[in-house]
Amino acid sequence: MHYAQQEFSVRLQWGLDAARLLSGQADHCVVVDVLSFSTSVDIACARGAEVWPYHARDDDAQAFAEARRALLAARRNRVQPSLSPASLQQLADGSRLVLPSPNGARTSLASCAAGTIAGCLRNAAAVASHLACEGGSVLVVAAGEVDKDGRLRFAYEDFIGAGAIIYGLSGSKTPEALAAEAAFVLARHDLENQLGLGASAAELRERGFEEDVALAAQLNVSDCVPLLRDGAYRALEALAEA
């Protein structure tokens, strides 16, 4: 049983179930999956792309992409558009990308908040500024890591990423939110090294994706606010112009 902590305006919870069960009790939901879904969404949307979250790169993913006239992201690599943030740095304006992810994408799709945003370290200040302007309660959902057996695992980078967004918000904050904020304040001057010491980054570096860790550790380099609407993330500015 999840407790919504509705007496607080800024809340932090973990994983898919939190998004599914608690996001409807907040005005805004921010999904944080620093390595790498949220970072990838920020980079892609900042380049004028739209990103369709999808739960997994399974047999149905290609048909899902074709129905939306979109490109299905490849398995993680640096050459083709994929869940690797580095692979999206040259994505063309107007691209439509289906981005499967077992953590961030699934958590995004589970959210039933009217305003669901992809947040990371890169756009933390921009997201917090947008939420401050909008007003209302905020649920920050740290996606965490899902092991092969389906169990949710704590992800240090998501805790820090959530804290970076919470740091820019005012209002009453849950103890969990305050703890994430404090962790971010301690780590903020050494983010690449701090994230690099975590298990998720170590796994990526072993596979040769050091650049993804470096990109994800950049703080407030993006003013993009990717908002989930009609099944796809688009930059807030693009939605305003539509």
Rank of each mutant, 00 (worst) to 15 (best):
E241V: 12
A105Q: 03
G168D: 03
A183T: 08
T39H: 10
L16D: 10
A232D: 00
V138M: 05
C224L: 02
L72G: 09
D33H: 03
N103E: 05
A216S: 14
F8T: 07
S111I: 03
D223C: 08
C133G: 15
T39C: 10
L236W: 06
A56V: 03
G48T: 13
C29V: 12
S129N: 15
D33A: 04
A4N: 12
Y54N: 03
N220T: 03
L83A: 10
A214E: 12
R153D: 01
D42F: 09
E145L: 02
D17H: 11
V146A: 09
E210Q: 14
R188Q: 13
A242D: 13
S40Y: 06
L91C: 09
A238E: 12
G150T: 10
V213T: 08
Y167P: 00
R20H: 14
L121S: 07
W14F: 08
V98A: 04
A214S: 15
A18Q: 09
R153Q: 12
L72N: 11
C120E: 09
S9Q: 14
L186P: 00
A118W: 02
N103V: 08
Q90Y: 08
T174Y: 03
G94C: 07
S129Q: 15
S101W: 02
R205I: 13
E181L: 01
R207I: 02
S36W: 02
G136H: 06
N77G: 08
L83K: 06
A118Q: 05
A19R: 10
Q194S: 15
A124G: 10
A125R: 14
